[in-house]
Nucleic acid binder design. Structure first.
Lengths: 213, 213, 213, 213
DNA sequence: CATGAATGAGCATTCATTCAT
DNA sequence: CATGAATGAATGCTCATTCAT
């Protein structure tokens, strides 16, 4: 029973990971269009032509990075779905916290995700977008559920609110840089609380006094 | 009283605006790197070489679009600063509303702003970033003020919260498309309320009962 | 009796001279290929399109500069030819002196002459080369005459010697710069003496003693 | 004992030489500005883009041609410096002879050298000019030495005389064409004698009688 | 005379991709 | 697996020249 029975040997898989890692670093820094196949090969210490032993096209690199990243994102969604017996807003808070934690620890991947998805071929882009849609549905569902349960006001469009929640999650990649004064856990906390409070939208109540003063 | 005294004739200025408009449309759709000078010329119905009567480099197009857009953004900030006698959170709400209104009505410009700022030369990028910084300072200042006034809890980093507010504003360009079921004014309302409630962060209070129930 | 009877008015001719002067300056500095029509127009303070009121093609500028310069060069030849009753080497010396004087005082023109003659159309180049040939013939004739008269050794090819004489004259434009420590008259002297002594070629005779000493 | 240990294989080096040779041929004929990268590729029988495997910029071609040519020129200077125990004028004569021999056998290189040095970037031009300066110093030094030794009159500027010597050497490339009636060795002889006699400058002495006759 | 928009051909350079060795 | 030479299409930019106003 040789373990080469799997289609790819362990060494091969490691090399593939190195290739994707190098590409991810570069794509995140210079953008997909701004990165050349030569750049990737340079980082790996091989020649441009040799890189084509690992990929068929440059777009392959982009797709694989995005595909693998989405595997982890989908795992977060699966965990969230498995959290039963919790109130919708608590489930939302947990989901946002997990997402922000992922975003802060996978800056290159999410940077590429939000910057260069459009450089994917239509078919592949559609594939990724479909996976993303499931996340949107989940969050929008939680919000609609909270509205139905009377936990939050029902006068606002759940879809718009869901987008605001994702804004809170996603935008992290544009301002968070490791080594800052606020650590990752705190950031996940603040963002989760911001998002949940945002969908609650009862700020006016607390503000009325100050406005009335 | 002729206003032809200005160095550029009206026709010239109109043509310049057409050039920028065509470029903005394309940059927003295909990205700066994905748009060729040829593309822009094609839209204008002139030859590639002729376009160089209006620009010196392709980057000029990007810079001018961003520069003009920032003029409008800065006008929003000026208006916000002029709103005296309002509580900080009310000023924040008004600012967010204005910003979201701008974002929904200037999708091409803001798309370019958040996607291709890095394609600008270092000097020009720095110039834009400096203008952006003033906005960040303003919002963070409002939040800090609200914290100092005891209007919102002071246990969360004002900088992180400000980033969450900007997330709410900015992300709009990624999901809002004109002609949807929710109109622009409603969206500005929802986002403003989301952001203000988010910084208030008193969701737990309202949630505790439901969680305790 | 208007003086507009001449094909070009005085003002027109002055303007033409300005155009040629500006072009000559630029061609000498940046080379013909390295100078754009725009550059010339800029120096004149007009637009590129307007320059075409004075020229038909860019090559016109080159040709006219060269043509006018050759008028002066030919005048030097005419003067030389008129110097009768002088020994050939004295006539050679006078010719070299005049030529070097011209070269040091017309650096832009001669620079263009020796650098960019090949950018002329074949017909025009041939025309200039024909005029140049007359100079070569004259100098070669003087040398042959001196050889025939026994004034200088006859064992060396008169054509090669003539080329060496022209080398002495022409090369001046590559190293002479006004304002140096040696004035123009001295330079003309040194060059003339160098050339004449060179064709005499009796250095060995004078050196033998010193070598024998 | 394989010499393939060197970083470039023999085939690679040969190809590089072919590339430089093709470029040199073209630059000499049409000038650097007048030669396109396409032209060079055409001569090599490859596509324009493929040429960039051998060069980084078009200027690289120019620099390498000039750099390699100067290696040979500097070898001539080294040989000249090694010729001890000879009177200065004899050393000058030998140097001129060697130089002229090089010039007549390397017409393309020297043509480019004297025509297109200015198309080099400032840094690279300075580098070449520094190497050239050593030659000028050497020749001027010989002349000064001869003057100090009383071998030639000391009333003429050694710098100007050195320039005249170089004129004699350099100008060869403008009139010498292989296959003429005078062979290369004779030309080197004539030029060397012309230059040495020129710096001696005692033509008057020999002329006085003929003028007095 | 002068303007300035437009032309159209050309240029140096880049780059994803292929393939014989 | 890796090399490196070659492809071929595209890109940003230049520039001499034209011409309606």
């Amino acid at each position: 029973m040789r373990d080469t029975a799997s289609s790819e040997s362990r060494a091969t898989r490691r090399r593939q990971a190195e290739v994707l890692g190098a590409a991810a670093q570069l794509f995140a820094t210079r953008g997909y269009s701004g990165t050349t196949v030569q750049d990737v090969a340079d980082v790996l210490g091989i020649l441009k032509g040799s890189l084509y032993h690992y990929i068929e096209t440059k777009e392959d690199l982009l797709y694989r990075i995005l595909d693998e990243a989405h595997d982890e994102l989908d795992a977060i969604l699966a965990v969230a779905r498995a959290r039963e017996g919790l109130a919708p807003l608590d489930r939302l808070e947990a989901y946002v916290r997990d997402q922000v934690a992922y975003h802060t620890t996978h800056l290159p991947e999410v940077t590429i995700y939000y910057h260069d998805l459009d450089r994917l071929s239509p078919a592949r882009r559609a594939q990724i977008l479909e996976r993303r849609r499931l996340h949107a549905e989940y969050v929008q569902g939680l919000i609609a559920e909270a509205q139905a349960d009377g936990l939050i006001p029902g006068d606002r469009d759940a879809g718009v609110l869901a987008n605001c929640v994702f804004a809170t999650i996603i935008w992290v990649y544009r301002w968070y840089r490791p080594g800052g004064s606020v650590d990752q856990e705190q950031i996940a906390d603040v963002c989760a609380r911001f998002a949940v409070s945002g969908v609650c939208g009862d700020a006016e109540a607390s503000l009325v006094p100050s406005a009335a003063a």
